[in-house]
């Protein structure tokens, strides 16, 4: 049990872990923090912790993350069960018949 301040509830990431990562790797943006600590990769996709991570970046670095480097929000907007998404598509044989595609031929 961690008796520290939780910043990302979904992925159970503490303030200490985030501050350590910012210092250790010289991180300057929310996405960089996400990559190293997983903060923002869980159920809420950073909706809760993004602002808190920005504040921690300011606290450690002494400057705010560049507003041009907004954290990327990933779809889907809300988590969706696999079978619900699959129900909106054709069946397996029809899907795999679409081929390999891309540059593989």
């Amino acid at each position: 049990m961690k008796d520290l301040k939780i910043i990302c509830r979904c992925q159970d990431v503490t303030e200490e872990e985030i501050v350590d990562a910012i210092r250790k790797y010289g991180l300057k943006s929310v996405d960089e923090v996400k990559r190293v600590t997983r903060a923002g990769m869980g159920h809420c996709q950073g909706k809760t912790c993004r602002k808190l991570v920005e504040q921690l970046l300011f606290k450690v670095n002494g400057f705010w993350p560049d507003p041009e480097e907004q954290s990327t929000s990933r779809p889907p907007l809300k988590s969706l069960p696999i079978k619900l998404v699959a129900a909106s598509e054709e069946d397996f044989d029809a899907v795999v018949a679409r081929g390999r595609g891309g540059q593989h031929g």
Binding site: A86, E89, F92
Partner: peptide, 18 residues
Amino acid sequence: SVKLGHFIPALGDVKILR
């Protein structure tokens, strides 16, 4: 989703996060 549901049907209720 179709392919995952085919190969492991038990994954049906698991949610895609991102």
